[in-house]
Design a protein around this nucleic acid. Structure first.
Length: 492
RNA sequence: UACAGUAUGGUGUAAUGGUUUAGCACAGUGGCCUCAUGAGCCACAGGUGACAGUUCGAUUCUGUCUAUUGUAACCA
């Protein structure tokens, strides 16, 4: 039977345009989705946009557009950005979608039936100019950090969710299912914060109207977070998709950890819905060493980066250059170096020289399982299968299988950088093989067969990461007559 | 301020309480080769933040310091 794999990304808030930080997470999701498909799993991959809330309403006002039009336009930009990166979700969900609104309302009613929602008063320190509440930390001495005015103590009627009730449940969840919060550092952080105690959550608003109507009271709209989180569940409430719940993996940035690891499981438990299996809370990208922010003006559109460097190079770099989970730096110089050295010189050149040799000399089909061993002088790591040997003796067939196993294991652990490193170590071995066999002199057709098979293996392993180029390689080397093709990666 | 994490050659990273040479990649230097995208192969050089401690022995464990990152609830 096929395994099912349901993966989601954070849905992006449409008050600003997509940048490489958003893209990073979507690339990872797409790689995982493709990899699971390759393994034969039945995959459901959902991403989308979060479109309600006051900030969006304000951004629309500022742009001088009706909110509906504004969100349509911004959502489109996100969609297009993912398309340009070859990120292909099975559904792009917008929180303004009809089915989502319906599911949210039903969800809230379920929580209400469970006795977890009550009417109360939200009290906070409010700046009338900002139209926003500030916490004591953001505004010490209760002075608005923007307007330097004294904040008003304000009370507002609001419905609350009994989050405090779920403290024990949550702590138990983290204990029983450590994989619920990855990586570990984020789990520890969350545990210690939850231990300090939980306050009930204000989940409705009356001060503006851009949101989903609160089903228990028409005077209220639903607080954005309560609405947004439910999107993951919504996507599985359509025909044929029900079986995908619970989600196998929610990918999210570390700024979202609290919402996904505390609010979300409590909400689901309240509504009587199964919990997702894993949330992976990754770090942020910098851009050329600087934090990405509007004010710095460095929030460059992913589309522009793709035009500049190519889809596969951007995808490759994002996964290769930094360990997934920590913060990373999208450094353009490093990207160019990796493009030239790794994609062009190692992979591109190997493909080109082998294709050229086959084109000229032909190839002889044989059982390469029985081909002779090569001594691999390079210290190929193969971390996951505990083979850390210098002067390893294997033939290319055996080695490619070891690499495959190692890569599979590493991807399951979210160690994409290492997985790619191993694939490229194998590419190095192939280049050494051409050299040591002096194929251009010997015209060794059997060796060329081995190399053909090895390159096909490499292309398969790389296909989740760099789908476009991998497809080209597979096409080129599966042909009856292998020909020297076009250059795969032009140097930058 | 509190709590937590990190600190490895020019850069990005890997590993280990002790195989008398801390691995890999890029950049650097020298050589070989010419099938290939001035690519490929071989070799050389360069490193464990600071100060103590535990130990026969620490890069690896402990402490202090310094630097840096994260978290500290309504921020999508």
């Amino acid at each position: 039977m096929k395994n099912k794999f349901y993966i989601t990304t954070a849905i992006d808030y449409v008050n600003a345009e997509p940048h490489i930080g958003h893209a990073y997470q979507k690339i990872v999701a797409d790689v995982l989705a493709r990899w699971h498909k390759l393994k034969g799993d039945e995959v459901f991959f959902v991403t989308g946009t979060d479109e309600h809330g006051k900030k969006v309403q304000k951004a629309a006002e500022k742009a001088g557009k009706p909110v509906e039009k504004f969100v349509d336009e911004t959502a489109k930009k996100f969609k297009e950005a993912w398309k340009s990166l070859n990120i292909i979700p099975d559904r792009f969900l917008r929180t303004t979608d009809k089915d989502h609104k319906k599911v949210v309302k039903e969800f809230i009613e379920k929580c209400n039936k469970a006795g977890d929602i009550y009417l109360g008063e939200y009290e906070g320190h409010y700046c009338t100019d900002c139209e926003a509440y500030y916490t004591e930390r953001d505004a010490p001495d209760f002075i608005c950090p923007v307007h330097k005015k004294k904040l008003d103590k304000l009370k507002e009627k609001s419905y609350f969710f009994k989050l405090s009730k779920y403290k024990k449940f949550l702590l138990n969840l983290y204990k029983e299912h450590p994989e619920f919060i990855l990586p570990k550092a984020r789990r520890n952080e969350t545990i210690s914060r939850v231990k300090e105690g939980l306050q009930d959550l204000s989940i409705s608003r009356t001060s503006f109207d851009w949101g989903i109507e609160f089903p228990l009271d028409k005077e209220h709209i639903t607080y954005v977070w309560f609405d947004a989180l439910i999107n993951y569940y919504t996507a599985t409430r359509t025909k044929g998709k029900e079986k995908f719940w619970p989600a196998n993996l929610h990918l999210l940035g570390k700024d979202n950890t609290w919402f996904h690891c505390v609010y979300w499981p409590a909400m689901l438990e309240s509504a009587g819905v199964k919990l997702p299996i894993t949330t992976f809370n990754h770090g942020f990208l910098k851009f050329n060493g600087q934090k990405i922010s509007k004010s710095l003006g460095n929030a460059i559109s992913p589309k522009i980066l793709v035009e500049k460097y190519g889809v596969d190079t951007v995808r490759y770099f994002c996964l290769r250059h930094f360990p997934f989970g920590d913060d990373g730096d999208f450094d353009e110089k490093a990207l160019i170096a990796r493009h030239n050295n790794e994609l062009a010189n190692k992979l591109g050149n190997l493909v080109s020289r082998v294709a050229g040799l086959i084109d000229k000399n032909g190839i002889e089909n044989f059982d390469w399982k029985k081909s002779e061993e090569v001594i691999i002088k390079r210290n190929i790591s193969l971390t996951n299968i505990n083979l850390f040997t210098l002067n390893l003796k294997k033939n290319l067939y055996e080695l490619s299988n070891l690499v495959q196993k190692s890569v599979d294991g590493l991807i399951e652990e979210f160690k994409f950088d290492k997985a790619l490193n191993e694939i490229f170590a194998f590419i190095d071995v192939c280049n050494e093989y051409v050299q040591s066999k002096k194929i251009w002199e010997t015209n060794d057709k059997k060796a060329l067969y081995e190399l053909k098979e090895s390159i096909l293996k490499v292309a398969e392993l790389l296909s989740p990461f760099i789908p476009e180029s991998s497809e080209k390689i597979i096409k080129q080397f599966s042909a009856k007559k292998i020909k020297k093709g076009d250059i795969l990666f032009k140097k930058i």
